[in-house]
Amino acid sequence: MYFYKRRTWPRQKVSVTKTVETIFKMRGLYISWLVHSLVLTVMVHLSTQTEHLNSTLDICRLFPDGTKIRKPGGCTEYIECKNYARSTVTACSGKTPYFKLKSQSCENAYDGTYCDAPCTTKTQGYIGDSINCANWHLCEGKKPMATGTCPTGQYFDKVTSACVYPKDTVCVATYELCDVAPLNVLFRDENNCNKYFSCDKDFKLQTHTCDAGKYFNVATSTCVAKKDVVCENHPVPDDVCGTKKLAFRNKFVSDQSTCRGYFYCRDLGSGIPDTNPAFLQCGEDYFFNQERQACIPREDQKCSQDRCDGREDGVFEIAETRGCHDYYVCQDGRESETKSCEDKYFDVATQKCTDTVKTYGACSA
């Protein structure tokens, strides 16, 4: 997720003619913008789909319920996902010892090249492989003569050609998502909420992008409104700081994903938009207003994103419906349900319905 210091931005309008350093110091936002740029660059462009076999992350975090995945590190077992976690592990055996991705069943042969013995014209004797540190192969050139696995808790050491304890060797086993994922099943890109993946018939990773204003919902395998998806890594919008024709210079702009988040676009010169803007965020009681270039009380700001952003469980948030009668119940920092004061008005300060007429910018005409 993005890194920032959570400070409350004053309500008055920001003078964009001041230097970046002066603005940040006056507002109490002591941010190394160079560090921000580096972090954002890494987060946005981190697209490798290589996973480590011994990672503590559960591969099912990326897939919808019911997905069957070849268990990483071998070809004889498969995992079934439920609630974004491993639910069951099933072993194939007998005349159908391999799990086949295309058929999603146990077969007499595996598909793809993931489980091929790593024997080449240059190999001779015992070697290990990269998919499981416990595996070993006996090769005569390209021909595999035998394959086996070290006893539980041991790794194959390529130097001594023997099974040893992990502390006595170096091994990093990895796999690509399309080595284990079923074909044509959509799964999420955890680095970009507006993107998602699938594996084609050749076991190659395909990247897809939702339409503007939408994020990928892994449960339904569809693109939906941003506010309906829990997103930890909001992508930097395209042309967020303008284009070569009109670059936003020394400006604060909405992150287009939340009510509180915004970017600072540096002045890099005429026709040079900032491609790595620093990410900032309004305090819990404020929403960003791009026109005023400031954070203002959240009840005074309209926002099409989730209005419960930053709120604790049980807190009520004014809804944007005209008349200021309705409000949201917040749970886990999200809008959980809408309630109405009916012929009364919702009072933001007291968190109650009142006979006194209340008018807020968020629910005005």
Results as ranks from 00 to 15, higher is better:
275 T>L: 12
273 P>V: 04
325 H>C: 03
327 Y>C: 03
239 D>Y: 08
247 A>F: 04
257 S>T: 13
273 P>C: 04
337 E>G: 00
238 D>G: 01
283 G>P: 07
247 A>I: 03
244 K>E: 15
297 P>N: 02
256 Q>V: 09
328 Y>C: 04
296 I>N: 07
343 D>L: 00
224 V>L: 02
291 E>Y: 12
258 T>R: 06
228 D>I: 02
283 G>S: 14
239 D>G: 01
268 L>Q: 10
337 E>Y: 10
235 P>I: 09
256 Q>N: 13
240 V>L: 09
287 F>A: 01
289 N>F: 10
336 S>Y: 04
278 A>C: 09
337 E>I: 07
342 E>Q: 05
231 C>Q: 09
224 V>W: 02
305 Q>F: 15
285 D>Q: 03
245 K>P: 02
320 E>F: 10
339 K>C: 00
265 C>Q: 02
231 C>G: 11
304 S>A: 14
325 H>F: 05
289 N>G: 11
267 D>N: 15
260 R>F: 07
233 N>E: 12
266 R>Y: 00
239 D>R: 07
262 Y>L: 00
265 C>W: 04
337 E>D: 14
267 D>K: 02
230 V>D: 09
329 V>E: 11
284 E>D: 15
314 G>M: 00
284 E>I: 13
225 A>F: 12
267 D>I: 05
283 G>N: 12
322 R>P: 00
311 R>P: 01
337 E>P: 00
308 C>R: 01
279 F>Q: 03
299 E>N: 10
257 S>G: 15
284 E>V: 14
262 Y>K: 02
263 F>N: 06
307 R>F: 11
278 A>P: 00
269 G>A: 13
245 K>S: 15
324 C>D: 07
281 Q>T: 04
267 D>L: 09
254 S>W: 08
266 R>D: 11
312 E>L: 15
304 S>C: 01
277 P>H: 12
300 D>G: 02
299 E>G: 02
268 L>N: 12
285 D>C: 01
295 C>H: 10
286 Y>A: 08
257 S>H: 15
230 V>W: 02
229 V>R: 03
301 Q>T: 09
298 R>G: 03
226 K>V: 14
224 V>M: 01
302 K>G: 04
288 F>V: 05
341 C>E: 09
263 F>T: 01
264 Y>E: 10
305 Q>A: 11
342 E>S: 11
319 A>D: 13
317 E>K: 14
265 C>V: 01
293 Q>H: 03
308 C>A: 04
258 T>M: 06
251 K>V: 02
239 D>T: 00
224 V>C: 03
275 T>Y: 12
304 S>V: 11
234 H>S: 07
241 C>T: 08
259 C>Q: 07
333 G>H: 05
296 I>M: 15
317 E>A: 15
284 E>W: 06
326 D>Y: 05
304 S>T: 08
267 D>P: 07
291 E>T: 13
299 E>A: 05
315 V>W: 14
292 R>M: 13
342 E>C: 00
343 D>T: 08
244 K>W: 10
301 Q>G: 03
249 R>C: 01
253 V>N: 07
284 E>M: 11
227 K>Q: 10
316 F>Y: 15
272 I>C: 04
279 F>V: 05
